[in-house]
Design a protein around this nucleic acid. Structure first.
Ligand SMILES: [Mg+2]
Ligand SMILES: [Mg+2]
Lengths: 605, 605
DNA sequence: CGTCTGTTTATAAACACCGGT
DNA sequence: TCACCGGTGTTTATAAACAGA
């Protein structure tokens, strides 16, 4: 509706975005590219400009303020926000792009064009997103599987944030020292999206804002004040923040049980010019809103046993309704068991899986359900769909946000210590290296999990003398790789910060993960409160009732910022170059051997 | 059984592998790293050496010969090969690593450590792989969901290859010029894994073997001879070949309907030292083997409707039993329809999906099933699981390979032209740029689909003067990026080759894809032969009957080779460096703004 | 504390297919 | 009508970040 709003605002945004790049050297690449990204597609879209102004100007909401920063939501979450912002709960790919750009300027002005590829990838990959075709068959709409849709909207998330932050303040920031964290367990559950989830490409050497925001450990007051100061040196390396990882099955019911919220309503092809401002405004609007009361509420079906996949559940930093839901006895069906279905369930749900005939091994799902604490990691986390087929979570239908508050305390506890010590460091600065470190180009790479090096710079560098303090470990092996050295500085700084207690990264937001853990740990000792099995993954609950589930949602934490807008694509080039240089033509021999694979003995050597 | 075979052989292999690296310059990185990769994990494994000799020495089989080249199988396929090589059809992660290293030396000597991360990623991502725990709960085994397991083994694939190649020869190599290819349509269906699937990191400038192998276009004889000659210049750029993309549902029944084949039998923890030789030998062994006749043949269950996910089906370059299978009338169920189920089905299968309430839009699946040719792309390809719940493909139970031969012609036809013109070029050399090209680091990037530039070398290059012949298109935009130029040469060469008919890339191996296409095109005009819907995706068929399906499997084509064992990880570093250089401290400002996301107006600028 | 295993998210790519020109 | 192109969709490959043991 508010189409063709102000181009000016948009312009402003861009301006800001450019600040970083400016007329730098050619290597600045990013900015250049970025701009192109948006323009190509949107320029023609007609609905490009609109009210991007809202984003730029509004300071009320939580993170949108920092216009060019990457939002703490995963692509999956953003897609859901976009689709759920329409009345029909469906949206064309192009409109999804537009919605996201309008609500998250980062993608419009900073992100590389590849972000659209990621959107498409997510739409295809997640079963939650279903493509439907218009009656005439001319248009394709992306929808959210009714059984999986919790009707999450950006607004809801915002509200959640506010609630959380308020609560945190009231609670007093949990400094989350081990002891404290542990104690806090039951009470705190940072609904926030997990502290560190961002993708922002990195760029600059040092001095990055660490900001934690409302998330876990740091009380808002602290976070805000501290963020500016200490955050400066925080973590600057990393290039792309991996989203919080919401664990799909977290909250069976939507954040706020609410159903559709009608945000934009311009479904169909309607460019929907104006969406941006809304989210902001909505935040300010009334908090409590009752769910159910929407026409199209889809799903309902019978939810067999554990029919829902996994993402179905909580695609974003949603709430985690920890209902407690007693673990059912033991179904004992072939394979899909309602309870702690491991993630793998997905398809399994209906299949008779384990007719294996081997009795000595149990499908982990079942095992886990029982032993909970044993078997192998994860999986139990999978609560997702098949999880608790039975529990519907028909609880608080509209007061969710509040509910969440109470639940929030939860998550954090799961592993206070660990977060602080290990995790916390790593995230922000690139500190610890759980997985080795990654091989620069010597012979360091040992762990199979890549792991990134904070600053990673190619050998020929030496240009950025940010730091040169080796971590004390691997240095010896690599000499020429400046990369390694860079990390050192960060770690030191960050470590300090972490210790101080306001490192955003450490704890991140156990929010979603905690649910899992809770379930698991339940049998052990962790459990104390309400958790149990689960977040009703059942779509039904969501639809039929506005169901209770305590939708807590995560909140952004923001802390890191966009560091460089680096273009990953370049990476390849560089690496190749290096290689080529070093290797004249040796490989040709090897390569040449191909022949038809079918034969040809290595004659080369 | 044949444990502790010859260490010598292994040694030899390594030797060969090293040939490429040797004592090159430090930049050689790869080799260095690679070695470390393997050593760390395997060195301790005890079962490391074993009979790797088989691999090195045997020239009988198709591609294993080229020891250091990346096999044409996707990770998913290799994992299946590994797991299905055991009697119990289960394997620990470590053993999977070992099996793959033993059977595909590439991973043992060339691949970067990240390949193990990819293995784990595939295990977790694909629902087909289910983790089970031993009775005592001490050990985790990875298994293949019985409903999805077609008991594919490396041996079977090999056999398939041979069959195919033979058939091709008999048929006379289809030079696959457009006209020919089109004509061949119904007859040829290259069961091979698709020509170009590899991941090999790239490294060298020019002169790469193109080798096509037995796959589609090129008759074996031709491929072999030609490969060496023309292949030289083929494609060298690309870094990682994306696997053929087997389209999971391709062959509902296993290649060779066979059930378990017992290859290694050393399940459990047994290091299984000796697996390697077997595959080779088996190839030589009898070709025709009847299926069914194995104890544990799992699945059977009732396969509801479209209960199987998708990967369930044909994870590897399996055969594509193009049974014809008439498209069922129209089930009309909520969403999952047996026929051309779109991939999205996965979970949907059992859920009542579309209770949406909106009648104007149809779930694509349904639509496609009906209209087939309309709606949106793909999806129909999805034949995978839900596809033809009904058709079982109980056809030729053991003569599949032959069947395949007849089918092969099929695939290629789908889009001969396009492949030749557009696709073919791109693949090999980096030729055309369907998706723009990717941004080197200027402002070129426009298409949201990354697209790689053949040689991608950073700006400062000029080192490899492989080619400088622009494709005629985009050149103008990028000047300094040597990358672009590199592609040109290839294209020219390859194009020529393609025209010749033995370009591996263009058509690749429509094998698996063809099925999809066939189905789709059916309604249109493409269809001519037997295709129709499908490759029985039903697990049942596989098990119950050795069902016919024509398992054609893909074959390697190999063509590209490992170009550089470049380390992607480095890339980041490089890009960052460049950025940093260009940007002094501008961003700090931006970054500093983080604060707590919740507030803070962009004060920086 | 470090490694291995497992789960997820992010990206880049390679293609397929479709519709517009 | 057809070839080319760009947008849309689907998959595979990789790198990473974490959780858990
Ligand atoms: Mg989908
Ligand atoms: Mg799995």
């Amino acid at each position: 509706m508010t189409s063709c709003a102000l181009d000016n605002s948009l312009t402003n945004i861009q301006w800001l975005g450019r600040m970083s790049s400016d007329g730098l050297s050619p290597s600045t690449v990013k900015q250049e590219m970025e701009k192109e990204n948006q323009t190509p597609v949107q320029v023609e879209g007609i609905k490009i400009e609109e009210d991007s102004s809202a984003v730029a100007s509004t300071s009320t909401s939580s993170w949108q303020d920092s216009i060019s920063e990457r939002p703490p939501y995963s692509y999956m979450a953003m897609i859901q926000f976009a689709i759920n912002s329409t009345e029909k709960k469906r949206m064309t790919l192009k409109d999804i792009y537009t919605w996201i750009e309008d609500h998250f300027p980062y993608f419009k002005h900073v992100a590389k064009p590849g972000w659209k590829n990621s959107i498409r990838h997510n739409l295809s990959l997640h079963d939650m997103f279903v493509r439907e075709t218009s009656a005439n068959g001319k248009i394709s709409f992306w929808t959210i599987h009714p059984d999986a849709n919790r009707y999450l909207t950006l607004d809801q998330v915002f509200k959640q944030k506010r609630h959380i932050s308020e609560l945190q303040k009231n609670l007093g920031g949990s400094s989350c020292s081990k002891t404290e964290a542990q104690n806090a367990r039951r009470k705190m559950k940072p609904l926030l999206p997990r502290v560190n989830s961002y993708l922002v490409p990195i760029q600059f050497p040092v001095s990055q804002p660490l900001v934690l925001q409302s998330s876990v450990k740091v009380p808002l007051s602290v976070a805000q004040g501290a963020s500016l100061n200490s955050s400066e040196t925080g973590r600057s390396s990393k290039r792309v923040r991996i989203a919080p990882k919401v664990l799909s099955s977290e909250e069976p019911s939507p954040f706020l049980p609410m159903l559709p919220v009608k945000e934009e309503s311009q479904c169909e092809e309607g460019p929907s010019p104006f969406a941006s401002a809304q989210s902001m405004q909505e935040n300010v609007s009334q908090t409590g809103k009752e769910p159910a009361s929407f026409p199209e509420a889809p799903h309902i079906k019978e939810e067999h046993e554990g029919s829902c996949p996994d993402e179905w559940l909580s695609p974003l930093p949603a709430a985690f309704s920890i209902k407690e839901e007693p673990v059912q006895p033991d179904e004992e069906q072939g394979l899909f068991l309602p309870v702690p279905p491991v993630k793998q369930e997905k398809h399994f749900t209906m299949l008779k899986s384990p007719p294996r005939g081997i009795s000595d091994t149990l499908v982990i799902k079942r095992r886990e359900r029982r032993e909970m604490g044993r078997s192998r990691r994860k999986q139990r986390l999978v609560l997702p769909c098949s999880e608790e087929p039975l529990l519907v979570l028909p609880e608080s239908s509209s007061s969710d946000s509040f509910r969440l508050a109470s639940d929030l305390p939860y998550l954090q506890e799961t592993q206070p210590l660990e977060n602080m010590s290990q995790l916390s460091c790593c995230q922000e600065e690139g500190g610890p290296f759980k997985t080795p470190v990654k091989e620069m180009f010597c012979k360091l790479p040992i762990s199979s999990t890549p792991s990134k090096v904070p600053v990673a710079t190619p050998p020929m560098v030496g240009l950025n003398p940010w730091r040169s303090v080796p971590l004390a470990k691997e240095n010896s092996t690599l000499d020429f790789s400046p990369v390694r050295t860079l990390t050192a500085p960060f770690t030191s700084l960050q470590e300090n910060l972490d210790l101080l207690g306001f490192n955003s990264t450490p704890l991140k937001n156990p929010l979603f993960e905690s649910p899992r853990e809770l379930l698991n740990t339940e049998s052990n000792d962790m459990v104390s409160g309400p958790l149990t099995s689960s977040p009703a993954s059942n779509p039904e609950s969501t639809k039929q009732l506005s169901s209770p589930e305590l939708p807590a949602s995560g909140l952004p934490e923001n802390r890191s910022l966009m560091e460089g807008l680096v273009l990953d694509t370049m990476n390849d080039s560089l690496s190749k170059i290096l290689l080529d240089i070093s290797f004249p033509g040796l490989e040709d021999d090897n390569l040449a051997t191909d022949i038809s694979w079918s034969q040809l003995i290595p004659e080369l050597r």
